[in-house]
Nucleic acid binder design. Structure first.
Lengths: 213, 213
DNA sequence: GTCTATACAGGGATAGAC
DNA sequence: GTCTATCCCTGTATAGAC
């Protein structure tokens, strides 16, 4: 679902301005740009992370970046896509999906405030008119997240830790919303106990008669 | 708490570039700028809502706007401050605080998607380094929102509709987070049932033994 | 007090040379 | 694949008209 754009070794024609990326050099350069972008963004923020600033951090001109990404927006989206892929790969390696919601939030916020800030900026863009690319990315992403949450909740239901009197899809949406909103408050003010909020939600989700912990 | 900057008729000296605004014309112009900014933003989005675009919508040069607002960021923040004041005034008029969380969300999202998108853009900025003005505004705002939510929850507790085994502040943070996150998903994809999510949270908050509705 | 005109540094996008 | 040069747009700043 997430990785619908894997194309290593493909030889078919492709959309204009999307480089072939069959050669190691271009592939490495592309990855370097993505990595540096995160770093520069964490330091300078959305407005100041210009193509020129990223290029300077790498040692190339801003125009060179456009061989790999059509626009700044696409570059940023690709950074987020890449991080999602990494997170998914890591989750599959460590175990299957996290049964614990709070640990899911930690993975979600991912210890990288800069990355979360980038996500927030891009989500905001996606709500605006004439931003089809960003909107498509995030509607997809939230759909995926809700699906994963629904799955985790279903497991909890089977294990007796999640009550069964409310629709799964609604609860899934609520869980994702709580993660989003709690991380927002936490990023603004680190004293806000983000994990306590998530644990509270876990408590609320328990069936009425079950044990307190 | 919210209205800490009411200064009509004040005669004290003020910070540089903040006009006195004792004269009706300037006051009206200022209000006009705030109103038009929301409209232009709803149509064009964050990037394209330039000072020049706003000025053009009013019939004034972009430089004129700076008589009223030091920077674009401050203009946007003032738009949000103004909307918060209006919402507060309206809430006080219609009744005291909303006892119903779901209706609170409707007031929160406020039927104005453009405004919510502006809020999201500005919150994102507030998380980044070197954005003290935005950060101060939103930490304040979230503190206020959590306070109001805690108050509403306390009333619910007294009325027997909110369980008493979890700390109020944590639940308040969770409630605000849910509003934020649900409105995000809803703005991206209007089919997502925002109010259902909030009603589900209300159900979850009920004491274990209480009636289902 | 209110506003226009103007200048400036920096941004993303782009064309064409190498 | 990368560069330089260029286009038009942006926020900010200042000078001076009225």
């Amino acid at each position: 679902m997430h990785a619908d754009q894997i194309d290593q070794g493909a030889t078919e024609p492709r959309s204009p301005h999307q480089p072939r990326r069959r050669y190691p050099k271009g592939e490495l350069r592309r990855q370097q740009i993505l990595d540096r972008t995160v770093e520069v963004f964490a330091e300078l923020g959305f407005e100041n992370t210009s193509l020129r600033a990223i290029g300077e951090a790498i040692g190339v001109s801003h125009a060179a970046l456009r061989r790999y990404f059509d626009t700044r927006e696409e570059l940023f989206l690709e950074v987020l896509r890449e991080k999602d892929r990494q997170a998914l790969a890591e989750a599959l390696e460590h175990e299957l999906l996290p049964v614990d919601l709070a640990s899911g939030l930690e993975a979600y916020a991912a210890g990288a405030p800069g990355l979360m800030a980038l996500r927030h900026s891009m989500v905001a863009r996606a709500m605006e008119p004439d931003n089809e690319l960003s909107r498509a990315f995030f509607t997809d992403r939230y759909r995926s997240l809700r699906g994963e949450a629904a799955h985790t909740l279903a497991l909890g239901r089977a294990a007796g830790t999640v009550r069964g009197d409310l629709p799964l899809e609604v609860l899934a949406s609520l869980v994702i919303a709580a993660m989003d909103g709690l991380s927002t408050q936490w990023l603004l003010e680190p004293e806000v106990p983000m994990l306590d909020g998530m644990h509270a939600l876990e408590q609320l989700l328990r069936p009425p008669g079950s044990a307190t912990s």
